[in-house]
């Protein structure tokens, strides 16, 4: 399910050379993904409501429709 599982699973029928190339490519892609997520989380940390507990507690709606 996770992106890591998916990306690190080379298909067994491929020859060794291709597999190692794939692994290198995947490793660098993985790093890129991790980097992207890190930058995103930095941004989320900045923008997320300061007092999450109070924010969530006060978010009360009436049912609608």
């Amino acid at each position: 399910m996770t992106e890591q599982e998916h990306l690190q699973k080379p298909s067994p029928e491929k020859n060794t050379e291709t597999t190692s190339v794939d692994l290198v490519a995947n490793a660098s892609k993985n790093e890129q993904l991790k980097h992207d997520l890190d930058s995103l989380l930095d941004e989320i940390d900045e923008v997320l409501e300061d007092n999450a507990e109070e924010f969530v507690r006060n978010y009360i709606q009436k049912g609608g429709e």
Binding site: I44, L48, E49, A52, E53, F55, V56
Partner: peptide, 11 residues
């Protein structure tokens, strides 16, 4: 249970 997770959901 951390409220930050619920806050992400709403925000």
């Amino acid at each position: 249970e951390d409220p930050r997770l619920a806050a992400i959901d709403i925000q």
